[in-house]
Design a protein around this nucleic acid. Structure first.
Length: 179
DNA sequence: CCCTGATTCGC
DNA sequence: GCGAATCAGG
């Protein structure tokens, strides 16, 4: 959908109110991405939301590198790992279509469970190549040439070759939106 | 890691 | 004009 006057107006309003581009995108709905919002904002020349007086010297982030194409690059080295248990307290992110009203009384008993699991797979859970099926995570662990090599084997979601944890690693930031 | 806006450029 | 991809920062 194109930018109708209405939508542009709403965009301006929300932008001025300080909503983030992604929030505005969500508000406008209908396949509008935050990039679309930002792009429009810039075209409207209202990128500066709170600019008292300053001519900020724009960044020169010239694009010297090839835009597309590229580095298929390496896959996974054998050495990776780490990651902390790290507990996320809470997440009041993502507003969505409506401005949310905060709950008056919200006792937040935030107790962080140890929840140790991450990457270590007990021996009896490890899978060899032949034991994999469509519901097992196929994330390789260890040196493929070694006898220690095995697969994660945790439950994976429908149609996804990896468990949730490893899927993140595999796709990381790519994909995200289908085209 | 998640998120933010900023920029460039093919369409 | 549009917005995805990318960059840079928090």
């Amino acid at each position: 959908m194109g930018w109708t006057d209405e939508r542009v107006e709403l965009l301006k309003k929300l932008w001025m109110e300080g909503l983030s581009a992604s929030q505005i995108a969500g508000e406008l709905g209908d396949g509008v991405t935050r990039n679309a919002v930002i792009g429009k904002v810039h075209r409207l020349k209202l990128s500066a939301r709170a600019k008292p007086t300053s001519s900020a010297p724009r960044r020169s982030v010239q694009r010297t590198t090839p835009r597309r194409v590229a580095s298929p690059s390496s896959g996974m080295g054998s050495g990776m790992g780490m990651s902390k248990p790290r507990a996320s307290i809470m997440r009041t992110q993502t507003i969505g279509a409506t401005a949310l009203a905060a709950s008056p009384e919200m006792e937040t008993e935030v107790y962080v469970a140890p929840q140790v699991q991450e990457l270590f797979i007990p021996e009896d859970k490890r899978l060899s190549l032949l034991q994999l099926n469509e519901h097992t995570c196929k994330w390789p662990i260890g040196d493929p040439l070694s006898k220690d090599f095995y697969f994660c084997g945790q439950a994976s979601n429908e149609g996804i070759p990896y468990c949730e944890f490893h899927a993140r690693r595999a796709y990381h930031q790519m994909d995200k939106k289908k085209r």
